[in-house]
């Protein structure tokens, strides 16, 4: 039993698949995330894959300060990802709303809507930092690292169609 469990944990550590949700980002963070797939950084070595469908993903990477129009979509996508899942906040925008703070169309920061597990700070963060953040998220999936404590006002993730 414990061998099966450790095999499962290894598999979760070695095969984190991402879904990228853009919640009103300026595109800076999105470009840096795609940079991770290029030959220079090549995250496929770590088993990381950018998936097109949230149903296939383990990690939701959110960039942008969460605008009014993307808020509901984020909750839907969060429900569509099967458990166990981890949310990574990419860049300063989802952490603090950054330069968009105070805008009437922004409802962020992200932790008001989803339980954020890993923050990758920077505007935009360097690809190295993004890869480190994804590795941390994979460690949470594998149970190597405890999940941070979340408040209860966020979505429970049971909603998806």
């Amino acid at each position: 039993m414990s061998m099966l469990k450790s095999l499962m944990n290894t598999a979760r550590r070695r095969s984190p698949w991402l879904f990228h949700a853009n919640a009103g980002s300026c595109n800076g963070c999105d470009i840096e995330l795609v940079t991770c797939l290029t030959p220079r950084y090549d995250v496929e070595q770590l088993g990381i894959r950018l998936e097109a469908s949230p149903r296939h993903a383990d990690i939701i990477v959110v960039s942008g300060p969460v605008t009014r129009t993307t808020c509901e979509a984020l909750e839907t996508v969060y429900g569509q990802v099967p458990n166990p899942k981890v949310v990574v906040a990419l860049g300063s925008c989802p952490a603090t709303c950054n330069v968009f703070a105070g805008s009437p169309t922004v409802v962020g920061p992200l932790d008001r809507i989803l339980p954020v597990d890993v923050y990758v700070p920077g505007c935009p963060p360097r690809p190295d930092a993004i890869i480190a953040g994804i590795a941390e998220a994979a460690a949470i999936l594998a149970g190597d690292k405890p999940r941070p404590v979340h408040n209860s006002s966020q979505t429970s993730g049971e909603g998806g169609r």
Binding site: R12, P82, P84, G160
Partner: peptide
């Protein structure tokens, strides 16, 4: 890993 996920 996919086998260990909880289906929706």
């Amino acid at each position: 890993k996919l086998l260990g996920k909880q289906p929706i």
